[in-house]
Simulated assay, not measured.
Amino acid sequence: MLVTFEVTYAEGWWSASAHAPENAIYTQGKSVGELIDNILEATSLHYTEELEAGERITIVTRYKPETREPEGQIPSNFEYKVDIVAATSGC
Rank of each mutant, 00 (worst) to 15 (best):
E52Q: 15
V3S: 03
F78C: 05
F5V: 08
G29V: 03
G72A: 00
L45F: 08
V3N: 03
E34A: 13
P70V: 06
T43C: 07
I39A: 04
G33S: 13
P75T: 06
E55C: 05
V3A: 08
H46T: 06
L51F: 10
I59P: 04
T61Q: 06
E34L: 11
A53C: 08
E6S: 10
T27D: 07
A18M: 10
I57A: 01
V82R: 13
W13R: 12
I74L: 14
V85M: 11
T43V: 00
N38L: 01
I39T: 04
Y80P: 04
E41R: 12
E55I: 12
E22D: 12
S89P: 06
D83G: 10
K81V: 14
G72E: 09
A87D: 10
S31E: 05
L35Q: 05
Q28V: 07
E34I: 09
T8F: 04
E34M: 09
Q28C: 11
T4N: 10
G33H: 11
Y63W: 12
G54F: 09
A53T: 02
Q73R: 09
E66W: 04
G33D: 15
L40A: 03
T67I: 15
M1V: 06
N77I: 05
D37Y: 02
A42C: 05
V7T: 12
S44T: 10
G54A: 15
C91F: 15
E79I: 10
G54C: 14
Y63Q: 02
E11A: 15
G72S: 01
